[in-house]
Design a protein around this nucleic acid. Structure first.
Lengths: 200, 200
DNA sequence: ACGAATCTAGGACAATCGTCCTAAATTCCC
DNA sequence: GGGAATTTAGGACGATTGTCCTAGATTCGT
């Protein structure tokens, strides 16, 4: 792995754990084990390293979504792979929140130029999930369902980071899966009796 | 209003808009219109001003919850008052996220000593909402329902801050209200057909 | 009205920030 | 193998950070 890649990798981790603003050039350089001068040779500004991190996250998200697409045979299984992230990464989420949500919120507060590019990670999930809901037969509502699921998982991530309530996480994941199973298969099915996603 | 109150008030606003770490003593002092020496006389450390801000937010949240309790006649109306926050503050939430969620996430990343006190604001909402659900007849599930609603609104806040999709906000609020109306009135009612909160 | 307490202003302090420079060390190409 | 390009180290730069100090200005109790 090149020095540049090590820098991006380390910055990605430190930005997630401590936030973008609170992580300094010196922190990254020390964690990588190089001098600040060497760091500067690869990245002239802090915005440049942030842009590289966002680019890395976009690429990794795309790769993960593609992997889910090939590994899971049906749309419901793929959506379940998305939901499973909350369980698999629960320790990290409880400690530092969701990497995407926390970065977007911080960049929004800083009014940073890269905030829209960071939000594009959410866009990837939204479009991919919408594709799965479309495959499940929900044509016009596919994107709305995707955003609903995305928001549901984001809210769960925020609360478990703030309250460290793992039982709540388990209930919400169960609730999301029940909601997914209960979705009408056909989009033309009238939705007269709107169901509720109350925790079991 | 005393100088100290002005400082807390201004710090509260600046912490919300720009974040705790990114807001400096000089920023607050300049916004209030006082010298840094004067500032130091009232607050010796940055942690002290943060603690005062958290205390203010806790008090204001308590007062707001009490006001909702007296203004709205029934538990459902009170819960709707909570939900209405998303609509009333949508411009601010789109620009800076939810004040509670963003502060808790930032303090978690900084591993700040005040993170649990900040999370107690969520605790106030949780307990108050649980009280309303309890009054609606959901005994044992009241707290789970409260956390579910809290997470739902948090997820909505994160996504509208990142994606600036106001239509999504409207759909989620409508979805929350429909979910609230669809909740069984009696807790003993068997919940065999778990409803889903799919966007309309 | 006068001493005491409080408030305010302005600057000093070391540390750290992002940024930039120079000069070695290394790698690469021919 | 030798010249060019790249990579690395280490320090300097001004600006800003949180913190602290001193000395006037103001307020207050008596």
């Amino acid at each position: 792995m090149t020095t540049r890649d090590q820098i991006i990798e380390t910055a990605d981790r430190l930005f997630y754990h401590g936030g973008f603003e609170a992580t300094s050039f010196a922190d990254i350089a020390e964690a990588v084990g190089i001098s600040r001068g060497n760091f500067y040779h690869h990245f002239k500004t802090k915005d440049a390293i942030l842009e590289a991190v966002v680019t890395l996250r976009l690429a990794r998200t795309r790769a993960m979504l593609e992997a889910w697409h090939t590994e899971a045979p049906d749309p419901r299984g793929r959506i379940r792979a998305f939901i499973h992230m909350l369980i698999a990464n629960r320790a990290q989420i409880m400690a530092h929140g969701c990497p995407v949500g926390t970065l977007c919120l911080e960049l929004a507060k800083l009014d940073h130029a890269a905030q829209h590019r960071a939000a594009e990670i959410f866009g990837l999930y939204r479009d991919w999930l919408a594709g799965q809901f479309h495959a499940l037969g929900h044509g016009a509502r596919a994107e709305a369902l995707a955003l609903h699921l995305l928001g549901w998982s984001q809210g769960t991530a925020v609360l478990i980071a703030a309250l460290r309530d793992e039982a709540f996480l388990q209930r919400e994941v169960a609730g999301i899966e029940a909601w997914l199973e209960g979705l009408p298969l056909s989009p033309n099915t009238p939705h007269k009796d709107p169901a509720c996603s109350s925790p079991s």
